[in-house]
């Protein structure tokens, strides 16, 4: 199923339609009837109390999980009809997690190459690209370091480089600064700003704090699995980029 992919606000990247998710055969309703539109190049923050369903929503947007009912459209394509979701994730999405999830036995440079195994890049290109990405997140000096020898902020920057490995269309981040102190957290957020500004990257970032919210163009608020505020689409900010 495809549908129109733009309106007066710009090109629609992601749209959800009556999204519901229940767990344990319906005993827990994590999301109900979420209708949401995210435009290409937008920087969106998702906020809400713990247990409100933010991660659930992000997982559905990222095709990591299937909705109980409703649909997610990505570039006009229904995810439920997509034949190869792994490939979709590999090519279009970059994930950043709260606790980084780097492979402990691999160096920074090697960690960044992990997602590239699924693309057909030759090894030399893979290494070169990983170097570029580490440079882009300011981690060139730390290429040969194992995650255990990096500070938490540095780890998150490596994880962001990894998320960018396959040139994704959108970066999905679940509390990326949740484990960082405010100084390293804001360094990570500066990086997001740059990606947004310089690469036109679409960012969807879950956050508890005000830090992200201040930088994002739009704040989506969730309460008990329902969308309570889809925010105002600010084309002004968008034009700035």
């Amino acid at each position: 199923m495809t549908e129109t992919t733009s309106n007066e606000n710009g090109e629609i990247l992601i749209r959800t339609c009556g999204l519901c998710k229940t767990y344990r055969d319906g005993a827990v309703t994590a999301l109900s009837d979420v209708n949401l539109t995210i435009y290409r190049g937008e920087y969106v923050a998702i906020m809400g109390r713990s247990g409100s369903g933010k991660s659930t929503l992000l997982n559905l947007l990222g095709a990591l999980d299937q909705p109980t009912s409703g649909e997610v459209f990505f570039e006009g394509q229904s995810l439920s009809r997509m034949p190869d979701l792994d490939r979709f994730r590999a090519e279009k999405l970059g994930f950043v997690f709260q606790s980084f999830h780097l492979l402990p036995t691999l160096t920074a440079l090697e960690n960044v190459q992990i997602p590239m195994f699924e693309s057909r890049l030759p090894r030399a290109r893979r290494v070169a690209k990983a170097r570029e990405l580490l440079a882009a997140v300011g981690m060139s000096e730390r290429e040969t370091h194992l995650p255990s020898r990096l500070s938490v902020g540095e780890r998150q920057r490596v994880a962001i480089a990894r998320a960018l490995a396959n040139d994704p269309v959108v970066l999905l981040a679940d509390e990326p600064t949740g484990n960082l102190d405010s100084r390293t957290g804001s360094a990570v957020l500066d990086l997001f700003d740059r990606l947004h500004r310089e690469r036109g990257m679409t960012l969807v970032v879950i956050t508890h704090g005000q830090d992200v919210a201040e930088r994002a163009q739009r704040i989506i608020r969730i309460k008990d699995g329902r969308l309570v505020d889809a925010g105002v689409y600010d084309s002004q900010v968008l034009q700035k980029s």
Binding site: A90, L93, F97, P115, E118
Partner: peptide
């Protein structure tokens, strides 16, 4: 387990 979940999330196929 968690690591494998990460690999899948960042686009590794089951086959890999």
């Amino acid at each position: 387990t968690r690591e494998i979940g990460v690999l899948r999330a960042i686009g590794w196929r089951k086959s890999r």
